[in-house]
Write a protein that binds this DNA or RNA. Sequence first.
DNA 1: CGATGGATTGATCAAGCTCAAGGCACGTGG
DNA 2: CCACGTGCCTTGAGCTTGATCAATCCATCG
Lengths: 296, 296
Amino acid sequence: MSNLLTLTQPNRFADATHASDSAWRQQGSLWSNLRQVCELLTIQPPATADDEDTLFQHVRFKAGQRIHRIGQVFDTLYIVNSGFLKTVHIDEYGNEQVLSFPMKGDLLGIDGIHKQHYASEAIALSDCDMILVPYKTFTSLGRIHVELEQAMFSVMSREIVREQMMISMLSALSAEAKVARFLTNLGERFNQMGYSGRSFNLRMTRQEIGSYLGLTLETVSRTLSALNELGMISVEQREIKLIDPVALKTLRRLPPAKARIKVSEIVSEKVTEKVNALVNKNILPQWNKDMAVALN
Amino acid sequence: MSNLLTLTQPNRFADATHASDSAWRQQGSLWSNLRQVCELLTIQPPATADDEDTLFQHVRFKAGQRIHRIGQVFDTLYIVNSGFLKTVHIDEYGNEQVLSFPMKGDLLGIDGIHKQHYASEAIALSDCDMILVPYKTFTSLGRIHVELEQAMFSVMSREIVREQMMISMLSALSAEAKVARFLTNLGERFNQMGYSGRSFNLRMTRQEIGSYLGLTLETVSRTLSALNELGMISVEQREIKLIDPVALKTLRRLPPAKARIKVSEIVSEKVTEKVNALVNKNILPQWNKDMAVALN
DNA sequence: CGATGGATTGATCAAGCTCAAGGCACGTGG
DNA sequence: CCACGTGCCTTGAGCTTGATCAATCCATCG
């Protein structure tokens, strides 16, 4: 599966205005068959599939290039074969809101189906190898292979659930919890891709993380520093190591009054003085103090 | 084909205390045909549809009843024919997060497709008349009427876009802007349903609005009072009148540093003293002062 | 090497949360 | 019919989180 991306591609996307225009100029580029595409999406390939039947073209994008833009006519879905991206929504006043950080196996462009124009913008954060799935192909495949239609609904449903989780997280969690979860989520995704989920490099800026989490870049930076000093992670610029994933995952929202937490779950070791110091230095919020005190 | 859904439900709703009680007692209950269902969802009914071919059963729910719960096995989609509901996600610690307020024409349950278990909980806020769409029927219809499959993808895509908007709003807007938009959105939806979009009753508590918008109920209450005193709306308990929808819709986010706003767009009239008074009384946040001053 | 974009850190402050008290509407039972 | 309870809403006072503004640092790259 990994030999799929030996593609050397002239940069005909330099202008990038119309990604797909240039697509059919592709000659010696790579193609994937249906089975490979299904594996990428982690869905069952249909038993009826003929490996040579339908082929999907690969296209490479350089870091910084746009895969599609808001308002552009929709006709293609994209699957990430390698690389990292962000999708963003631009509000009425030009502010950029990061919606997701797609990586290997993720499907892009679904939001374009509704109005037949993309509702978001996808931008490569690193060099990327993307598989083109013309929407027409997508739908007709569903009709040919019955099991596939199921899987397609399932993938869209998964996206909806993902966004629901995002909404929950945005409106319920504290800054610390948001950042902590963001890191563990990233870790899990790296794991699934076969990389280390403990030690990885961020592909996005603090700014982008902040936008994604509904925080400012300063808060993201401060929180990373705090988690670092607490010994839950180690940060050095973009290089992240998750030292205490359990503590990270259970780091909770600043509790809404009533349901306060069993402190033992919060941090793995005694950290009273450390925590107090950080609270006093204004790196950690007040309530950590009580918890740390209650700890030992 | 014609009897795809002659369902007298087995014990899907095993828990007799809820919802379902009423469900199977309905014998002479209402049924809708495909054409009617399509109209409700505002999608094109397929030309090939035979009105008597496929029928969809209606089920009534009383205010407070659950339509489905988290984790329950998924096999049915619901379309709201009348009434008002909320969907919620319950986090690991029992906190309720409101995800949407479905009403006439909305489709519920899509989030169950992915794992074959509902990922959220739907609760009637008023008496509701719901149309059952067994998932099996749903998918087989897509195969029979080709145009329908399109429409089904489109509906799911619309939901994804809606949630993206929600995410943007949650992380970018101020409390005031959130509440203002919430009201205008509600108004627009009432309009589409043929009711007045200017004057309506809230079906949900301040608590639920707050959860939906990522605010506390107190903030929601205060903000409503503020918009009321500013003359943009009138509030009396659950009764809302939108007096200046334009001002409401353009009420902006607390600007993120750089891109500050053309003040003229904010409020429709001169309101300097009013605003100052409210700021001093701590009802409106500080920055309104500058805007009001800049106004005249 | 300087320039540039990103990251860190500090100091200050206000938006929105928490806690608390009281008010209003509606239903139920005496 | 009123008294009372309950659930929801409003308003106030004070405090914390996280935003803002600003200075500095660091890394990369032409």
